[in-house]
Design a protein around this nucleic acid. Sequence first.
DNA 1: CAGCAGATTGACT
DNA 2: GTCAATCTGCTGC
Length: 205
Amino acid sequence: MIFLTPEFYQRTDVLQIAAELIGKYLVLNTDGQAKKCLIVETEAYNGVGDKASHAYKGRRTRRTETMYLKGGHAYVYLCYGVHHLFNVVTSVEDDPKAVLIRALSTPDDEPKFHPASGPGKLARYLGINAAFDATSLTDGALRLAQGMELSADQIAATPRIGVDYAQEDALLPYRFIWKEHPALSGPRGINRNLRSITEIVPRFS
DNA sequence: CAGCAGATTGACT
DNA sequence: GTCAATCTGCTGC
């Protein structure tokens, strides 16, 4: 397995990274057992200028402090007091950009059963909790690895989910999906307003 | 300090 | 479609 390196995470273009993470593996090692899942949905949170981000206007709290670490760490926080959400911290130290991992294809998937088809569900599925917050993704139990080679027309960008409060930034096409994948989040019609990946991330390879 | 909204989900009408 | 669960952090008295 080829793990992603600090250099991958420490690039400053979080949109580029969020798009490239589609088709990569998320690997959890516990007790000598490895669980390998494919990332099929992500969202980019683009730093201090992004109204949808916890770090908007450079806000620093005990919770968001993790986003200010250098790229390659996990940012795990509790949402609605109920669900843990897992993010990949990117860019350099003190530039709080992160990618929310929203859905995974897992070894336990069945035609009508997708246990990691949502950001809260995937954390529960893998047992990701507050103990993973601020841990390294390059030398810890949780890592990302090279996965499938996807072509540009297999990936699309859409507006992000659940960020209506972010005014005009709620419309930005910062959510990336593996088109038509059965493990995408939300049974509802949230895959509207699709944009071409090359339109949003021109250098997608 | 009270009130409220939030990067969600699943149970129920 | 509606609503509760229940932690963090912001706003306003």
